[in-house]
Amino acid sequence: MNLSRRQTLALGGAAVTVTLLPISFAQAATDDAAAIIAEFTGGAAVGEGDIELTAPEIAENGNTVPMKMAAPGAASIMLVATGNPTPRVMVAHFGASAESRLSTRIRLAGTQDVIAVAKLADGSFIQSSKSVKVTIGGCGG
């Protein structure tokens, strides 16, 4: 079989697509994130409420992305990066003298949704999510 360079490239491309399609990596990670959140909530329903997640819409570099989370009165807040190879980021527990808010810097493997889930004092859960676009630097880095 004689293949031109172009045909070979096309075949290679097709092979890559086939390999990736059945289990998309991002999809797997999102499922994983759902499981991680379920573990945190004990399977309880997660509602909406007074929780704020502040993140840049566009992160200049995925290595250091500033994040702020706040949920007045929350006992703890979990942060999950749905598109990371390991979506867990952190769980913060707040004592009586702390306001239920935390600022930090995290790693994001690519453009994805980041979710903050707060456990309120009454044991209920609320969440907020933010989509963060992670750009690749101008010169490939």
């Binding site: 250091t64 990371n84 390991t86 979506p87 952190m90 769980v91 527990h93 707040f94 702390a98 790693r107």
Partner: peptide, 13 residues
């Protein structure tokens, strides 16, 4: 008395 405790994962910078 505990003010804050954070369980940290590798995704922290």
């Amino acid at each position: 008395e505990n003010v804050i405790t954070v369980n940290v994962e590798p995704a922290v910078s």
